[in-house]
Amino acid sequence: MINFQFLRTSIVKTALSLVAKDPKATFIAGGTNLVDLMKRGVTAPEKLIDINQLPLKQIELKNNILHIGAMVSNSALAENAIVKEKFPLLMLALQSGASAQLRNVATVGGNMMQRTRCGYFYDTTMPCNKRQPGSGCGAIGGYNRMHAIFGTSESCIAVHPSDMCVGLVALDAQVVIAGAKGERKINFIDFHRLAGTTPEKDNNIQKGELIVRLEIPVNNLNKNFHYQKVRDRSSYAFALISVAAALELKDDVISTVRLAMGGVAHKPWRLVAAENFLKGKAATLANFEAAAKIAMEGAKAFGENDFKLKMAPNTIIEALTVAKAKA
């Protein structure tokens, strides 16, 4: 049998040192992704450090910045009163993910760290550069309906599957990471990586580091917002395309705008050029359409996901239209 140790600690420092000194050790949070990967033989850690008892479950507002502990469950976060009031976009993104049962145990940190759902990644008899660097990419020339259209590389065209992260990248969140040398802070947009030539690396966290919390500055984006997820069934399916949109409107003129997309890239995809275009412009359908067009510059599809070239801009338009109509 494949044996592994299971250790539990309520002290962050202990958790860090346990993983730092053991190359085959890893954290386990809700386990909804990690255990599947172990069952499918994609990963085989020798030591699991259970971090569920770490004191990282706070949701609190300090100096106009929301602090969210890495161990807060996806449902607890979505149901939190401050989140509902000040960051309803994040609430919608969370509620679009997985199923109620999964959200009850899935954590903020685990959600950020979840691996791609590419079928070839999960099947150890198939080629996959992310699972086994150098073995080839099964999805290129194969089944790639769910795959990326932005920032792809010759080695991997997988997408990051999270909904929560699309909301977070739109909200200018920051990630606080603890390591042997103390804490460091990075912008959420820099947390996940593009595949490039190292598809095995999903993000910029170092081995042995632990996500401890997120920080989101309070904004005025809680009136005109929408998270639009397009999927194959009404719930419990990953996004074909998802769009997080938030507007700050003054007399129908856009003073602030945030746009991000899921289901299109190896990381949650912030639409900076489209945002820049919309800023200062009237919130009209024509401008939304123009912004969607700008957002699609550089998109490249792989056959079975050609439809995303149409679905993505359409979903941007829909998300902006619904966001505008809210009040």
């Binding site: 199923s99 759902r117 079928g119 008899t125 198939m126 194969g142 069934r233 009404s234 719930s235 399916a237």
Partner: peptide
């Protein structure tokens, strides 16, 4: 929603699980 997808290069299904083979959920 339902379709079992095959990669004909390998003769193998690529969505052989309940996350990817979509049976309707209550919300449907």
């Amino acid at each position: 929603t339902e379709e079992a997808l095959l990669d004909n290069r390998y003769g193998k299904y690529v969505n052989n699980n309940f996350a990817d083979y979509h049976v309707p959920v209550h919300a449907d």
